[in-house]
Design a protein around this nucleic acid. Structure first.
Lengths: 234, 234
DNA sequence: ACGGAAGTTTAGACCGATCTAAACTTCCGT
DNA sequence: ACGGAAGTTTAGATCGGTCTAAACTTCCGT
């Protein structure tokens, strides 16, 4: 009982909250050049002043480079920790689906909590049990132990070529409702489809999956990553 | 990200720390009539003054009955929460052994952390996956959802009858080192043995397990619960 | 080139959980 | 029956993480 949560090796005082900040900064850095206080605050649903305070703490711990009024960036150490947490998250998501029958829209929430308390030992057993997987249930790449991140396709359904045979490789969404909707369309990783039509002015996109045809909002289409599929059906 | 950890239904502000206090008080109450501040402090490895502070908090939350200078006892509500946490703990222990190949000496530590973050949904899936088990890997009973606790044998190896055929039903120890030792002796739940001799003055106890004979310290023997085994081998 | 809006940081407070040091109870042995 | 040791509680501090309110920067548009 009581005993402190032992953390692998490096820095001692890494709390779940710190892990969340690092993860957030990590994700935002690959969406925008400058990661700013307010952005972090919005994502984490805290006030900007709280973020400022935490950024100072993180800077003291050498986890981020923080320049007041300008922005923040992860140090190599901060980056490594972010990737470890993301690895935990995605391993857990996949495990819950594969081993315990969760659906892909349920696992994000669970993983959000568990990622912070997964011991190295448990992580290893889970990874082994899954055969050292590289993709989670949404097609998101699972960082390897050495911090390597398998890169995946970058073409979205919103700008894929018409008429070609495509395969869904990744669905970049964590909202349970939308994921359920997307699943009813059959737009899960591995699914094959063709882009029939793209309406102008960021309008909806029409796809055929099997025999069914669906119109998709372009914002939704932009969250679905695809690649050109090799000659003929699965 | 961020989102608060939603707790089932009843009281809102139940933190992991509170859960640990409740669990501790629960266990101590069945070992001794009076649960006193210092005892709790020792078990949780905090100072007595910290315990006093927390007991007041718990009393405000109607989780305990606290009488200064005398002692503390769980209310029905506190008891219920303690049992929920214990259920989590033991389900997790069993799951780690059955599903992920952990050994019985590794699981306590893991469960100690995970018990506080297990969602109701995950608990349900794990319980179902295990077929709604009633005993964890050490033979400790798993509280049912309704708070029912399957009672197990109370006869210890230290005061079991000589020469009779016995079966180990429970090993009341959480120390990894000792558990490993006990396992090498084959004294795991389900094992059969006979008590050969009991040295006087709380001296060691001699047992035969299969063909092997071992002398056990009486304190160790007292942590091993047995029952008389029905006619003939497993 | 400069004034104001938007964004950011500082100052100060709070809460949960812990600590140390000091005061207070309890109770046991004489 | 009472004095002291052991146990317990109070008082006040600290730490992590958050908040509000006020001050300060940045930068854009005129």
């Amino acid at each position: 009982m009581a005993k402190a949560v032992a953390r692998k090796q490096l820095p001692a005082g890494i709390t779940p909250v710190i892990e969340d900040y690092l993860k957030t900064i990590y994700f935002m850095a690959q969406e925008q050049a400058q990661v700013k206080t307010t952005d972090v605050a919005k994502r984490l649903r805290v006030k900007p002043s709280s973020v400022t305070a935490m950024l100072k703490t993180l800077a003291d711990l050498k986890l981020v480079e923080y320049r007041p009024y300008y922005g923040v960036a992860l140090t190599p150490l901060g980056n490594q920790i972010a990737l470890e947490v993301i690895r935990h998250h995605r391993l857990i998501e996949l495990y819950l689906v594969k081993a315990l029958g969760f659906s892909w829209d349920e696992v994000h929430e669970e993983a959000e909590v568990l990622e912070h308390v997964l011991s190295e030992k448990l992580e290893a057993r889970i990874a082994a049990h899954l055969g050292d997987p590289t993709l989670d249930p949404h097609g998101d790449p699972i960082p390897a132990l050495d911090g390597t991140l398998p890169e995946t396709a970058t073409m979205t359904l919103a700008d894929a070529p018409l008429r070609k045979r495509l395969r869904v490789v990744r669905v970049r969404d964590q909202d349970a409702e939308r994921l359920r909707y997307i699943a009813t369309l059959g737009l899960v990783p591995g699914a094959h489809l063709r882009l029939i039509e793209r309406a102008p002015f960021e309008g909806p996109v029409t796809v055929r999956i099997g025999k069914r045809v669906h119109a998709l909002d372009s914002r939704l289409a932009r969250t679905i990553l695809v690649e050109e599929a090799p000659r003929h059906p699965s």
